[in-house]
Design a protein around this nucleic acid. Structure first.
Lengths: 211, 211
DNA sequence: TTTTGATTTAAACAAATGATTAAATCATTT
DNA sequence: AAATGATTTAATCATTTGTTTAAATCAAAA
């Protein structure tokens, strides 16, 4: 006479429903928003609606939890970038276009990510991989090729990357600078970013023609 | 029979020589380098070679000391920008050139300043002023004028500023990203910035021709 | 020389914060 | 139902950190 109950109670041992997940969500939100130092373990516990000790029970420490979120964020980013940059089917121009569009789309949803990454120099290895991915990509081959063929001017690859990434990311880094008081509203800011999505590739192209 | 002594002992009551100044210097260095949270009052005291309590004796609190440094930094920046941007004697192109060159020169000496400013959203009023200075400057008048005369394409002023500032400042923000391990040395980085000093104005000009 | 007021110090306080502990609770198995 | 092992809690610990206090020191004035 237990089989009814057995079907109903599929969940095995779960008092606080998905406590581990709730902690991860809370940590993800708070860390990404405020950075490591500004977030207290008690904030995370409160946001997750769980007891403080649970945080240390599931994840060994605050640091550990942070690293998990950090890697998660970076992986998400890297996956998108790699896919674009190593694509052998698209032209240089198309890559820049897609790259910028993807960056801006991700950042529009996650506007605090760049500051988060910059603020926390704890985990460098991920960023290093990013740099490597860029420099050794098919994208870079295409750049060298275009220079050789005289389609674009000779440009330092570092400058090209700095320009693409800088033009795209910087507004999000400076974010609050352009919102406070007589500045921009969130809506205006987002509209501006959508406008830049179209413009940045054109600007980059124009740059590549500069002698 | 006191006049000899009066001349010799010009310094009035100074045991720890210039303690106040030493605290300011230490705070300036540490705050600019690491930001508010990462610097402990004990760090400052140690760096200044003074007793911890002196910090609270001369400056009421850590926060107060920080605000002083912050305003100092912003004022230095603002002074340069204002002078350039309101100059009625120089052309638009010259302004961009001088603006970029000055930014890069200041930042080359003070590479941690942008991160410092971004990291500490405590004092917003200064940055607001900066924005105002830009938007209501003679520089902006010249932009509008050039657009009217068809010398440059119609561009959203916000975009123009974001591009100039972004291209110039972003490398310093991403600083460490481009240095660790197989990245850049300090020397290489500085050389790259010097190169950009010449290139950014050209890039901006090219942008301004994009339809 | 004594007094006075500014400067400096060592010590302590109080709050915040990351982590741990020991006991309680609950679902499942025996 | 009792035992078991995972989950959860309240309470506590230990450290860090900004600040204060009370006393000591020192230079100048009286």
């Amino acid at each position: 006479m237990l089989y009814f109950n057995e079907m109903a109670t599929v969940k095995k041992k779960k008092k606080t429903d998905g406590a581990e997940e709730k902690i991860l969500s809370a940590a993800r939100k708070l860390f990404t928003e405020k950075g490591f130092d500004a977030v207290k373990t008690r904030d995370i516990a409160k946001e997750a609606g769980i007891n403080l000790a649970l945080l240390n029970y599931y994840f060994r420490s605050k640091e550990n939890l942070f690293v998990i979120i950090m890697k998660e964020n970076m992986a998400k980013f890297m996956e998108v970038i790699t896919k674009i940059v190593d694509n052998e089917e698209t032209s240089l121009e198309q890559k820049i276009e897609v790259l910028v569009a993807n960056y801006i789309d991700i950042l529009s949803v996650n506007p605090d990510m760049p500051l988060f990454v910059i603020r926390n120099s704890r985990i460098d290895d991920q960023r290093m991989k990013m740099r490597g991915k860029f420099m050794n990509s098919y994208f870079m081959e295409q750049v060298q090729d275009s220079i050789k063929k005289g389609k674009i001017e000779n440009i330092n690859p570092a400058n090209l990357i700095l320009n693409i990434v800088g033009l795209t990311i910087f507004p999000f880094v400076a974010h609050r600078m352009f919102q406070s008081a007589n500045g921009f509203t969130q809506k205006e800011f987002n509209e501006l970013m959508q406008e830049r999505k179209k413009l940045i590739p054109k600007w980059i192209e124009a740059m590549l023609k500069v002698k």
